[in-house]
Nucleic acid binder design. Sequence first.
DNA 1: ATCAACTACCTAAACGTTTATCATCACATC
DNA 2: GATGTGATGATAAACGTTTAGGTAGTTGAT
Lengths: 356, 356
Amino acid sequence: MGKATIRDVSRVTGLSTYTVSRALSGAPGVSADSREQVLAAARQIGYIPNRAAQGLRRGSRDSIAVIVASTANSYYLDLMAGIQQALRHFDWTVIIADVAVDGVYNPRLEDRIVQRLIESRTAGVITTLTLSSENTALLSQWDVPIVFVDSAPPESANFPSVTTDNYNASLMVGDHLAEHGYRDWLFLVYPKRWSTRVDRERGIRDSAATHGAHVEVLESENDEDSAFRTLETYLAQAERIPRVLIAGNNPLLLGALRLLRDRGIRIPADMAVVGYDEFAWASLLDPPLTVLDEDSEAIGRLAGQTLARIINEQAEAAKDGGSQSPVYRVEDRQQVAGRLIVRRSCGCYVDNERPR
Amino acid sequence: MGKATIRDVSRVTGLSTYTVSRALSGAPGVSADSREQVLAAARQIGYIPNRAAQGLRRGSRDSIAVIVASTANSYYLDLMAGIQQALRHFDWTVIIADVAVDGVYNPRLEDRIVQRLIESRTAGVITTLTLSSENTALLSQWDVPIVFVDSAPPESANFPSVTTDNYNASLMVGDHLAEHGYRDWLFLVYPKRWSTRVDRERGIRDSAATHGAHVEVLESENDEDSAFRTLETYLAQAERIPRVLIAGNNPLLLGALRLLRDRGIRIPADMAVVGYDEFAWASLLDPPLTVLDEDSEAIGRLAGQTLARIINEQAEAAKDGGSQSPVYRVEDRQQVAGRLIVRRSCGCYVDNERPR
DNA sequence: ATCAACTACCTAAACGTTTATCATCACATC
DNA sequence: GATGTGATGATAAACGTTTAGGTAGTTGAT
């Protein structure tokens, strides 16, 4: 049949819906006998509870949303894995909300999605980008906790955040390049909407300053094709090619590598290359790539744990008749250290990746 | 406040909840004046409808689930992009349900997730793996349409499916290898649970038979590490290394390439390599990889379109008092042609990837 | 025998919507 | 003046759960 309700179970067993409900949820106040009966009957008629009704009645919120802009970056896969890991033992459904259409960020879609999340009374949000202030406010108004990952939260409400320590990461990159003696760097980077940009750029600039290197910052849209074209245009008008290319993230790296290959620019002989974000194929490229590894799985795990804790505390407080709004702690602004994986594209001849 | 209900809007405007409801949904039977008032009031007090209540009352189902096993394969990204594209203009929420824990498929999790999908009265399911027959039956019982992508549906109910034409794809691979004169192939492949395995293997075997080549089929679990170890064990006991390695999918390819690099086996001089599934870095590897491209975005698009049509037809039929169960058509078993992208790992010296 | 304290269960009212049914009013028609 | 006809809106009953408040029945102490 396919649509048995709790009342059907009640009818079949001759017990009230109250008893059935308690029996099914494992709550006390039901004899072992009755419980047995209920479970048997439920199985027999194929009863499966209706989540919408449950949610409505208990005012429960049962899903968690991860907001991303264009999942095309494989970095999200690791992030998601971490999040799933942290939330595995809770009973939330994790949903991915992509605010990009055909790979490019779309503010109207962001609005629509946030609206939608509130409509379905989402329990919490993990966002990989700085949401519009309207949307942040809206979510807060509806008491939906937000955790920012690899993106800057608005200063206002000390929102929790988990971020790579991008500034120090950039210093590591810069210092390593300086050790090679390179003094002429090109930093190809995505727009400031992805706020990690700020710290990454600051680190690179500071490091350059320290070592007396010159750094050019070249902004591209956050996708492979834009990176290709931006770099193409830049090289066309540059007097000489920079000694080093630093790619702000994976898609940009990909676009850049394509261009360099087409141009026949040799790595690292003509131009050394360093990327942000480790990825599966990095060690198999020609040459193997030196990258700054973000450990996005750890970031995801941390974000998931933090969000879970906040939601649970919030539920606790609400049960005791306290405030509905989530409580954020100062120590929930967390940074995860990155690490530099040195391979050959920077000019080193070592390959420190161990086989597994 | 953050929890205005339709009754609050009703109170503020002095109109009944009936009128408010109709006004908000844009249904007829409300004067322009009242509608105006309602909208203004709703905005003013920050009313946002409660999806659970709506769903409960109208019995509507508003999300679509994509079931995958371990998203770690980047092929899913393209697939998802295609699905999202097809469903963009409908009002469903697309959720990803991963039935793998830490990257390995978990049958208990599959059960739990299907249960969950029914609890939340999911509108439809796209699955990338052949679900257990219990779960397929369960979903059918609850009238949830299922579309299988790159996986074999059970023969029973002529479920719709969208698949690469794996048999012909494998013939293409085999034929190309034969042209090179290779006669000793190793096919490294994932378990039969991912049912594309069957056609892929059949194609390879048939092609080998046609060309008088010998093919060894080596089964590994569906992840990088297993592939590495399986191949390692195989090579340890093999008399000589095969002339060709065909990797059944991306994670296996990755594991295999790692091993070959560690062993110092040169590609294609010692061993030619061909993979299934195109991916962004394929052309940048050393050597650039010859792969069979699946066009998973097209597959996703097709699957999304098909599912949308079926759900809508189902809703239509239900409205006219007809049957609730989805109607599947024979022509919804669709195949998408693959194409061989020839680069260098197979032994060819051309690189036919055009720069963009 | 009375009362208290359980246990096991029931009845009925919620939760926030949509909608079937009914009511009212204005106007036109005869 | 009686009647019909649309338009607009109100009332109340659903949808499938959970749960507050209550009622029996049993047991044990007094």
